[in-house]
Structure formats: C-alpha cells, structure tokens
Amino acid sequence: MKVGFIGTGSMGSLLIDAFLSSGALEPCDVLASNRSPNRLLQLKQRHPGISIGSNRETADGSDIVFICVKPLEFKSLIDEISASMRSEQIVVSVTSPVMLYHLESTLPSKIAKVIPSITHCAKSGSSLCIFGSRLNKKDRLLLLRLLSFVGVPMEIQEKHTRIASDFSSCGPAFISYFIERWIKAATAATGIDETLVTRLAGEMLLGTGKLLTEGGFTPQELQERVAVRGGITAEALNHLRSSLEGVFERLITTTHDKYDEDVEKLDALFGLSGIVQAPLDR
C-alpha cells in the first residue's frame, strides 16, 4: 500500500515521522510532495527510501493521499491534482475547516477527514476521524488501523470537528501555556530548578491522563479526591474557579468563530456559497 503526503510542513512531516517510527509504514511505502524542494530533500535525508516528486505524481501513485496544506490552499491544489485522482483512492484531509462536501463535490475519490495531534510524536493522543459517504467498512478499518499505530483514532460527527479539535489538537498548546505560566511563577517565587519542576509537571500530566482514561475518574471526582475540604488544594482551587470565570467559554467562542470564517471562505473558493449545508454545531 502506497501512502502519499501532499504538504510536508508541520503536520505532514509529523505524520510521516510518526508512521515510519511506529512501524505503520516503511519508507518505500511513502510518497511526498511539497512546494519547497529544500524541505523535501531534508525529509528524504531523514528518511532514505521515501519517494519525492510533484503533487500530481504523489496523487497518482498513492492508494491513500493525506492532504496537509493550509485551508485556503486546498482549492488550487484540488484543481491541480483532480485529473490524477481515481475513484478507488482514499483522500484524507487533515485540515479541520475543509468539509467533506468541499472534496466530494470536486474529487471522484473516497473522502475522509482526520484531525491529528502533535501528541502522535509520542505515539499518544487522539486522531479525530470523519468518514465520507463513499468509504465502505473495509476502507474505514484500513484508516483506523493505520492511525492506531500513532494514537487512538476516534470517529466523530463532522459537526463536532471544531470542539473536538479544541481538546485533541489545540489542547496540547492550551495546557502547555497553563503549565508554562505555572512553572515560571514557581521558579520566580521559590527558586526551584525549572528542569525539575517541568519534569514534575510532565509526569503529573501523564498520570492525570491515565486516571481520566483508565482509572475511571471524572475531572470532578479527581478534584474531590485530591482537594480535602479546608486544605491547601481546596483553597487554591477556589482561587482558580474565580480567576478563570468565563475563560473557557471565550476560548470556545474564539476557535469556533475562526473556524466558521474559514469554512465560509472555503465555500466561496469552491463555488458553494449560498448552498444550504448542515449547520455547524457550537
């Protein structure tokens, strides 16, 4: 099975690195293209054996094609490769605002959307899977098996793409920002070694994740278990609750507004403006 990657920037190269290091694919299975020849050469130096070429060559030679370009680059790319695509191929968009209907209206191929996460670098985290109407059970299982090498694939409804991505894909940045600010405050206030406290924070996040996914705890139950009434943790939690009032609601509004804006721009590019589609859930 040949797997192509059109776009080898941040997410494209992450997926290639993760699939190869996990054993999901061998270098001879991978085709890649990018508008930057230097980036492609660097990728080939890192992974001898992969095939590099043009977008059309990658599209034509692949059984599964991951499209890893920015939202507003999709239409010109589709125009470039559409003549090379076939009905038996699987095309996978990794860009959340690109809707299934954008690609199913312009390509003959089977269409899926997969939202990966930087956590796949550690063979962890979730990949969000949205399957188009042309994929059969065998196609879905093929994609799920491939993605299971680098994380936990989870099928979701397309209308939940944005909110699910807030957790699985954007979440590492949000949580890292919180941890970064906490670490800086700790080192400034106490002089504790930054490397040490960063390691403590990382191990805490790993353990907390396991308690939520494997230990049977809900977030609220974890808080109740750790925060003894009248204790230090409980007092600090009360401070957090008051300080963060409304923050998460504004975060969700911000990500959804940008998502809706990008979808509208893509509708215009694909000539689908004014067509009534399924509403995007908030």
Rank of each mutant, 00 (worst) to 15 (best):
I16A: 12
Y177R: 12
D17H: 15
F74S: 07
N34R: 13
F178D: 05
V226N: 09
E203F: 01
G207Y: 01
R86L: 08
G216N: 05
F5N: 11
K258M: 04
R250A: 13
F174Y: 15
A24P: 00
L266A: 04
S62Y: 00
C68E: 05
G231A: 11
L128E: 03
T233F: 05
G246E: 13
F5T: 05
I232M: 13
M1C: 01
S124Q: 09
V91G: 06
P27F: 01
I81E: 07
R145F: 03
Y101E: 14
E224P: 00
F270E: 08
R282Y: 04
I78S: 07
E26G: 12
A122G: 00
Q42C: 11
A186R: 07
G230R: 08
H239W: 05
S105L: 03
K159P: 10
R241Q: 14
I78Y: 06
R229G: 10
N55P: 04
E104C: 07
A112W: 00
F131A: 02
V98F: 06
S168A: 15
E88D: 15
H160N: 14
R134I: 00
L103Q: 09
A186G: 09
S243V: 03
D79E: 14
S168E: 12
S10E: 15
K184G: 02
I192L: 15
A236I: 11
I81H: 05
S87M: 11
A59L: 02
P153V: 04
C121Y: 12
L15V: 01
I275F: 01
G202L: 10
S176Y: 10
V94G: 11
S22V: 01
N238H: 12
L77E: 05
S117V: 05
R181Q: 15
S22H: 03
T213Y: 04
L135R: 02
V3L: 03
E214R: 11
A32L: 12
R250I: 00
I78G: 08
K113L: 09
S169E: 10
F149M: 08
M85L: 14
F66W: 05
Q89F: 03
P153T: 04
P108Y: 01
G207W: 01
S109G: 02
V226F: 07
T95H: 09
I111N: 01
F131P: 00
R181A: 15
A201L: 04
P153H: 12
E264V: 03
Q45S: 15
H239A: 14
R140Y: 01
E155K: 13
I16L: 10
M99I: 00
P153F: 06
V228L: 13
R225G: 00
R250K: 14
I183K: 06
T190F: 02
R199F: 02
L103P: 07
E249F: 02
S117E: 02
F174E: 11
E88V: 06
V276L: 09
T58N: 11
L147H: 11
D257W: 00
S13Q: 13
I64W: 02
V247F: 07
K210R: 14
D79A: 11
K2Y: 04
M85H: 04
G216I: 00
V276F: 00
N55C: 06
L205Q: 13
